[in-house]
Write a protein that binds this DNA or RNA. Structure first.
Lengths: 207, 207
DNA sequence: CGCGAAACTTGATCCGTGTCAAGTGCTGAC
DNA sequence: GTCAGCACTTGACACGGATCAAGTTTCGCG
């Protein structure tokens, strides 16, 4: 029955938006493969990157607040995803307590994640933030069965910087440092993590 | 029927915890009067302040992620609150679509709020953060019918600093500046906002 | 009411990160 | 293959906020 509510096998080319801020919320999305960037554009026209969406992760949950999406989500690489229309989801919530709990769990998780991240970013210095970003990415890839030590960044340094509240130069310097310390191999957007523990430690504020 | 699920008129003295990180999530809470601090303690023993809870606001929602609370919430002044046991809430979610939507809305709102705050804090300088904090507080008080221009801070400068990712000296200096600019009157923890627009502007990154 | 501790303010200095400016190296198009 | 444009790296410098260190005010408690 849940099966019937899910629209599978949808595709989106790089750079195209999955949702736009202000649009009525008509569905939740779950990314199958590829990755996307969640961001919003301030009045001054500068881009604030809320985060990145990896395979297996859901987007659109903030829409429950007002019935409208509150940020833009656009594909960083060719994307395949599922679409779960709210119309079809709502009646199921009545009959399926497990699904109800699952949706609440997803929302709770997103909330907890966001709060944790905020506190961490507020208290950690630039290199720590970049280390945290890499460690987090690595962990999320691992959860999907992808390699946590060899991966390709689908986002630019500028996107990372805007996500972490830094400048792209500072991100670049942090990566340079990690490379020099022997913690990473970096070639353009290809990353090999050589010392995962060092990144985790630095990213947790254990300096 | 929802009425029957809510335990009203509960009290808590200053400094006492409403919930502790790691405890099983047994209930949601809604503050009636007073205020509280949401925080967690890092491995290094330093306190990270997630935010402050004002009358009319709910806490405990992050617990949906894992079934356990993920932060400490303790009273900054004598607190009165309602308790909504999850046991009693769950069956109601089946029968009341409106309540279901309301819970989803609350969670979505908390999520959106947290993400917005994170992006704002990441991009704004120290005085902007303090201005944003005051403008936000003012707005939330106004929503509850309290004065948005005359209020008493229930939290210390150190709490504000740890919330904003600053030091208490910097918070103090920012308040000093605002006072000198004629935007505020500050006497210890009593605040009078003289130029709300200036605070909102600075707090939105319009420098 | 007065004492003492805690909260807060204010000042001086230092370090990290933003800013500005070249320089280098990918990548994709013709 | 080569060229153009963009992404990224690296360097020099300035400035905002952290840190350290006194003072001052506020407030709880005897």
């Amino acid at each position: 029955m849940l099966e019937a509510a899910v629209q599978r096998g949808r595709q989106l080319p790089t750079g195209v938006a999955l949702m736009r801020a202000g649009e009525p919320m008509t569905a939740l999305f779950v990314v199958r493969s590829g990755s996307a960037k969640r961001y919003s554009v301030t009045l001054q026209g500068c881009e604030q990157v809320h985060g990145f969406v990896l395979p297996g992760e859901a987007v659109g949950l903030e829409g429950f607040a007002s019935g409208r999406y509150t940020c833009e989500v656009s594909a960083l690489e060719p994307l395949s995803y599922c679409r779960v229309p709210i119309r079809r989801l709502e009646p199921l919530l009545e009959r399926l307590p497990g699904l109800r709990r699952e949706i609440l769990r997803l929302l709770g998780q997103a909330l907890e994640e966001s709060q944790r991240l905020r506190c961490e970013l507020a208290q950690i210095d630039a290199r720590g933030r970049v280390a945290h970003f890499l460690a987090d990415l690595s962990g999320r890839l691992a959860r999907r069965g992808l390699s946590p030590v060899e991966f390709r960044l689908s986002m630019s340094r500028a996107d990372i910087a805007r996500h972490l509240g830094l400048t792209l130069e500072t991100v670049s310097r942090a990566l340079g440092t990690f490379k020099r310390e022997g913690w990473l191999r970096v070639r353009a957007r290809d990353i090999s993590v050589l010392q995962p523990a060092a990144l985790v430690a630095l990213g947790s504020g254990l300096a």
